[in-house]
Design a protein around this nucleic acid. Sequence first.
DNA 1: CGACTCGTACGATAGACCTCGTAGTACGGT
DNA 2: ACCGTACTACGAGGTCTATCGTACGAGTCG
Lengths: 120, 120
Amino acid sequence: MTAAAPTTSSRALPHPAREDIRLEGVLHALSDPMRLRIVRELAAGADELSCSHFDLPVTKSTTTHHFRVLRESGVIRQVYRGTAKMNGLRRDDLDALFPGLLDSLLAAADRQAARLGVAG
Amino acid sequence: MTAAAPTTSSRALPHPAREDIRLEGVLHALSDPMRLRIVRELAAGADELSCSHFDLPVTKSTTTHHFRVLRESGVIRQVYRGTAKMNGLRRDDLDALFPGLLDSLLAAADRQAARLGVAG
DNA sequence: CGACTCGTACGATAGACCTCGTAGTACGGT
DNA sequence: ACCGTACTACGAGGTCTATCGTACGAGTCG
């Protein structure tokens, strides 16, 4: 109604509340190479990145699956913006629940990537 | 000498070399509640703890399985000492590979346990 | 030696997980 | 209204995992 520009669109996606985020779930989400890669790009990139920004060596179905696992474990936040789905790390919640963990994890991933000769 | 007391016994167990430890493997190992619990007890307890010290709500077969996963992912070191198998965290290797990660993980686990009202 | 304890190996089972393909929905532009 | 793009839902295949039970090897103590 008189709504001109609903840039942030209607469809809502189920996210776990902060207090429902479980460490085991986060670790499980990050234990998959594809998902770890997504999170690293998310941390290195802008605040929000669309799903299609990622060029993963899997089909789009699988990509969707991984993003959902990340969202349902509480690692990322997803919001529709038109046809695109924007993804962002839940830094605030993760830092509140597990101070320093996310940074250690990202640093560890960076270190390993450097050690294995994979471009960051 | 003349080998009187072979406290540290014969049977050797395969461990991954430090440089073969993968972050994804570590995270996967720690993403299981039973294994996370083991690691927490290991970190809180003495340098080395026997398998039988742990009173887990699973059978002995399953316990063996979990310890093996932890060992093969590089999280713990296992050594036979008579009939007992002593377990210790590979703090040195993990700290060298991923500085600060183990402490962050343990702190996060402690925090969550406290938050959920589980005795540490 | 015999018996007991500690832990292993192997097989089985049920569930979870990663991957894919196809078909379908939501949104934006022409 | 139509089409293209972005993402999803559902189902299937193959692999991995957690769990168990039973049978077995290694070591210690009487």
